[in-house]
């Protein structure tokens, strides 16, 4: 049995083991790598950033907010959770009011986990610590029963406080400071849905068609290819595609929102290799760079898979050639 015959018959569990090791090493020993951003991610970042209050305005009184619709459970967390952390961090860094909602019961604790993770990082950081307060800086609408999703999406077009009534902590929405000057989609004019299936479907169909609400999605990589037609027609204003999308958003928040700068491609290019934003910089909390570190492992795994495919194909053609020779 020659080398290629052995390769064709290799036990798949060896492949799993090699793949696991190739992923483990970049995670255990992070290295610096460049993160290039794509247009769909930049569009979403710029839209959210445009909701930031002007410098001389009290953020609580500002009449702009956006909604995060969390429509996934723990099974798609590795891809979607880092996105949620990055978007929440962006909102809190720039004092943008953010609301969260879900119609999936098992997503409710994930919302709490995401908000609490970012809040803790803000409260405990050495430079410019910040207390993020529920009902003031953000409102978690919580879990709502799926049977009411249509009524609520349409109802928010008239009056959010009336459609949702109470938040996850049982408080009347109308009594919360964060709802000041926020009535309907005119003020909450962006919905970002994080989902592993049917990205943005209900929001595009109902909120966008009827009220002109801007819709963006954070999706698992499996669904990303299906979303491009809606990006092309402008029905979606932006998209975060899988772990790569999360890494891109993390990078944008790190370079711009965290340093209180406006988005600019020139700055992004200039800061590409700045050690201040490097993954090995211990001042950046792990939660705010986990997608970028994950993408290091992803890159190594992709190279490994390409090598496996090449070796497998070479082996296949060599075998085929030999069989042909034997027949002749």
């Amino acid at each position: 049995m020659n080398f290629f015959e052995k390769l064709q018959k290799i036990d798949r569990r060896w492949i799993y083991l090699i793949l696991a090791i190739s992923i483990f090493l970049p995670l255990a020993f992070p290295f610096n790598s460049r993160t290039f951003t794509t247009r769909p991610t930049e569009s979403l970042y710029r839209m959210i950033d445009s909701f930031a209050p002007p410098p001389d305005t009290d953020p609580v009184d500002h009449n702009r907010a956006f909604l995060m619709s969390i429509m996934h459970d723990a099974s798609t967390m590795p891809e979607l959770f880092p996105m949620e952390l990055a978007v929440l961090r962006h909102a809190f860094e720039r004092d943008i009011k953010v609301f969260t909602i879900t119609w999936i019961a098992t997503a409710a604790p994930l919302i709490d986990l995401a908000i609490n993770t970012v809040k803790e990082e803000f409260a405990t950081r050495e430079e410019n610590p910040k207390q993020i307060i529920s009902g003031v800086h953000y409102v978690n609408f919580g879990f709502k029963i799926p049977a009411l999703y249509l009524a609520m999406i349409l109802g928010m077009g008239e009056d959010i406080a009336n459609a949702i009534e109470i938040d996850a902590e049982g408080r009347q929405l109308s009594s919360l400071p964060a709802m000041t000057n926020i009535r309907n989609y005119n003020e909450m004019n962006l919905v970002v849905e994080f989902t592993g299936s049917a990205p943005g479907g209900a929001w595009i169909t109902y909120a966008r068609s009827r009220f002109g609400t801007n819709v963006a999605v954070g999706v698992t990589a499996v669904s990303a290819a299906d979303v491009y037609p809606q990006l092309q027609t402008g029905q979606l204003i932006g998209m975060l595609a899988g772990l790569k999308g999360a890494a891109e958003y993390e990078k944008l928040v790190e370079v711009f929102a965290a340093t209180d700068r406006e988005f600019s491609r020139e700055i992004l290019r200039a800061e590409m290799d700045n050690p201040k934003f490097a993954l090995t910089n211990d001042n950046i909390p792990y939660n705010f760079k986990q997608a970028r570190i994950g993408m290091n492992a992803q890159s190594v795994a992709h190279i490994l898979i390409i090598v496996f495919i090449l070796i497998g194909n070479i082996g296949y053609f060599v075998q085929k050639y030999k069989q042909k020779q034997e027949v002749q």
């Binding site: 992923i23 995670l27 990589a221 899988g242 772990l243 570190i293 994950g294 795994a301």
Partner: peptide, 21 residues
């Protein structure tokens, strides 16, 4: 789509190994 699917599946493994490490 298949390339994206591979990326998604690897991401799930990355998420779990990140958790363990």
């Amino acid at each position: 789509s298949f390339g994206y699917t591979v990326m998604a599946r690897i991401s799930l493994l990355i998420g779990r190994i990140q958790f363990l490490v």
